[in-house]
Design a protein around this nucleic acid. Structure first.
Length: 258
DNA sequence: GTCATACAGGAGGTTACCTCA
DNA sequence: TCTGAGGTAACCTCCTGTATG
């Protein structure tokens, strides 16, 4: 979809941006393969942000998802099963996570902050490329491979999704700014054109303002059409202006009537 | 079939730690 | 050495979807 298409063909003007399709919003759909439809609603998009590539880690991730294929934390059939399988360990994980993270060795409440190493980050990135969300089994397995707590993996994915969305928001914002600039320029140009046409009309003798010719010209694209042809016998002025008061609509396609 | 409740997980926002210029 | 900015792990709250009685 080109920029011009957005401005001229949709009639929606600033209805821009990208959001995942309904299909894309399904959990565990690979983030990098999403298809997007234009929208102001923001969503995940093909992620080019801060990506670390590692052959070894990619292999590991593929194995991870092969092992767990068919398990979705959202699909009706699997939710119950996952809860049965993972509820105990997940609960344990949550409790232990709080205890470990909230209390220091000496019992103080200092929040410990670990720094993921390069390999851990690479494997997490590869996993995220395949699936932007994890089900409990995938989380457990990934945590085991990374030697991290499942809670840490969960947090990483939450933050990663947030960063992706933030990045996409910034991109969309820039895009909308450009749209706004273009529409402002177009508006300015059309206003100027309108002023010129008004001045031209006033400068002509009265008899020249009569609908002597059947030619019409679109003020936007400056194409001249045979207004009288095609069975249309309605008399028209040389620059057939809109019969109604004409308000500039930046979202309307100026050439749509042509 | 409908409703109330509980639970799990994600989004959005915030806090706090760490690194670096 | 100090400091402010930026990145990000960890946390909190709210909302939504699903299962269950």
């Amino acid at each position: 979809m080109g920029f011009d298409d957005v401005v001229c063909n949709t009639g929606l003007g600033l209805g821009l941006g990208f959001k995942p399709t309904a299909e894309d919003r399904k959990p565990n759909k690979p983030a990098a393969t999403s298809v997007f439809e234009p929208s102001l609603t923001l969503g995940l998009c093909g992620d080019t942000y801060n990506r670390v590539s590692s052959k070894g880690s990619k292999d590991a991730v593929e194995v991870l998802y092969r092992q767990d294929s068919g398990a979705s934390s959202f699909s009706n059939g699997s939710v119950k099963r996952e809860r049965e399988v993972g509820s105990e360990e997940v609960e344990l994980e949550r409790v232990s996570s709080r205890v470990i993270s909230d209390e220091d060795d000496d019992g103080t409440n200092a929040r410990k902050k670990l720094r993921l190493n390069k390999d851990q980050s690479a494997l997490l990135e590869e996993s995220f490329k395949l699936h932007s969300t994890l089900n409990p089994k995938q989380k457990q397995e990934l945590a085991r491979r990374l030697n991290l707590r499942p809670r840490q993996v969960e947090v990483w994915f939450q933050n990663r999704r947030a960063r992706t969305k933030l990045k996409q928001t910034e991109v969309d914002c820039e895009f909308l700014k450009k749209c706004c600039e273009t529409l402002t320029d177009e508006n300015r140009r059309l206003q100027k054109e309108l002023q010129e046409l008004k001045a031209l009309k006033l400068s002509q003798p009265f008899y020249m303002q009569l609908p002597a010719a059947t030619l019409t010209m679109c003020p936007s694209c400056e194409r001249i059409g045979g207004g009288g042809s095609g069975g249309d016998t309605t008399p028209k002025s040389p620059f057939s202006m809109a019969p109604k008061p004409h308000f500039f609509n930046p979202f309307a396609n100026p050439s749509a009537a042509c």
